[in-house]
Simulated assay, not measured.
Amino acid sequence: MDTKAEFKALRIYEEDGKFIRRIEKRKIEDLPEGDVIVKVKYSSLNFKDALSVTGNKGVTRKYPHTPGIDAAGVVEHSESDKFKVGDQVIVTSYDLGMNSDGGFAEYIRVPEAWVVALPKDLSLRQAMIYGTAGFTAALSVYRLLAAGQTPEMGPVVVTGALGGVGSIAISILASLGFEVIAATFEKSGGEDELHELGVASRISSEITDDQSGRPLLRPLWAGAIDVIGGNTLHTLLKACKPMGNVTCCGNVGSGDLAMTMYPFILNGISLIGIDSQKCPMELRQKVWDKLAAEWNEYNNNEQVIESSLENLDIYIDLMLAKKSRGRVIVKI
């Protein structure tokens, strides 16, 4: 492959304490080391991408940088025994788009250990409708089921219900027969979307952000999938029915968790951490296979927005303002 070949990429520069976004030409030889070069067809927008774009050093340490923690495309060059030229693949998580140049570009070069073969019956576009958000949602549901959560135990509340992780988690849970409570930042709007996803009822995020200071609350749900963290996660735990399970996959609200042990030692609640970034490859492939088959419930949802690299600024700003809905995919 011609390493001098040029391609288009969204680059973030740090200039005088400000972070500037530019679309520019790069060369293959500029990419980081790796075994597999992928021609990217689609990427998707995640909260980590928005943080990287704005200079969050907890996500990206050095600039200039190309964000994009998701990519789906076709192998253009391979030094791996696992993948050959022409294979359709998915790359999400690990260090892609964080400290290694990511999917908001026409090409990426990555280690073979980061690459997942595209499952049968899943297109590259569908894979990015899911992306890290969909994978995280599916992994959360997978872990809930593994912990023994069943529809008979009662409703499951999902925070950030109109966002990427939340909306996909709701879709999967509803397809499995769970009664789903949607918790949203917005008090109104999005009713049609939530109904289409299979939501049974909706509550304001104020209900999942208890300020009473009490260590336990009257049980309101049997389980939860949380993307917010902080006091929201605390509220979900102390208002959960005995023997329920709560997953945590985000810290949009806060990374702190100040609480007592009472939900755990008096009600037997289980708190399940979800790490999609370093999920073992065997489990990663299992979850992707489920998304391609029996959990493939989301791909025709109208809440999928397709953007170009040139228009991506609009959706990044909406996400940072906590006004994003559904999934934004990027056609490269």
Rank of each mutant, 00 (worst) to 15 (best):
residue 3 T to N: 03
residue 6 E to T: 09
residue 7 F to I: 02
residue 8 K to A: 00
residue 19 F to H: 15
residue 31 L to S: 03
residue 31 L to A: 02
residue 36 V to Q: 04
residue 36 V to C: 06
residue 38 V to Y: 09
residue 42 Y to H: 12
residue 43 S to W: 09
residue 47 F to A: 02
residue 47 F to V: 00
residue 53 V to S: 14
residue 53 V to H: 12
residue 59 V to D: 13
residue 62 K to T: 13
residue 67 P to K: 11
residue 69 I to S: 14
residue 73 G to S: 07
residue 73 G to F: 04
residue 76 E to S: 11
residue 77 H to E: 14
residue 77 H to Y: 11
residue 88 Q to M: 10
residue 96 L to P: 11
residue 96 L to A: 10
residue 100 S to C: 02
residue 101 D to E: 12
residue 103 G to Y: 04
residue 105 A to I: 06
residue 107 Y to K: 09
residue 108 I to A: 05
residue 111 P to W: 06
residue 117 A to H: 15
residue 130 Y to K: 01
residue 131 G to I: 02
residue 141 V to L: 06
residue 144 L to S: 09
residue 149 Q to G: 01
residue 154 G to T: 08
residue 158 V to A: 04
residue 169 A to Q: 09
residue 169 A to T: 06
residue 173 L to E: 02
residue 176 L to R: 09
residue 176 L to V: 03
residue 177 G to W: 04
residue 178 F to L: 05
residue 180 V to L: 04
residue 181 I to W: 09
residue 184 T to E: 11
residue 185 F to M: 12
residue 185 F to I: 08
residue 187 K to T: 08
residue 188 S to D: 10
residue 190 G to A: 05
residue 191 E to Q: 14
residue 197 L to Q: 13
residue 200 A to E: 13
residue 200 A to T: 14
residue 200 A to Y: 13
residue 201 S to I: 00
residue 208 T to Y: 06
residue 213 G to N: 10
residue 213 G to L: 05
residue 215 P to H: 06
residue 215 P to Q: 07
residue 219 P to A: 08
residue 219 P to C: 06
residue 224 A to L: 07
residue 227 V to N: 15
residue 228 I to M: 01
residue 230 G to T: 00
residue 231 N to L: 00
residue 233 L to I: 00
residue 235 T to V: 00
residue 241 K to H: 07
residue 242 P to N: 05
residue 243 M to H: 14
residue 245 N to R: 14
residue 250 G to Q: 02
residue 253 G to P: 11
residue 253 G to Y: 04
residue 257 L to G: 07
residue 272 I to K: 15
residue 278 K to H: 15
residue 278 K to I: 07
residue 281 M to Q: 15
residue 295 W to C: 10
residue 296 N to E: 07
residue 304 V to W: 12
residue 304 V to C: 11
residue 305 I to C: 02
residue 306 E to C: 03
residue 307 S to N: 01
residue 309 L to R: 00
residue 313 D to N: 12
residue 314 I to H: 11
residue 314 I to D: 05
residue 319 M to P: 05
residue 320 L to F: 01
residue 322 K to D: 12
residue 323 K to D: 03
residue 329 I to D: 05
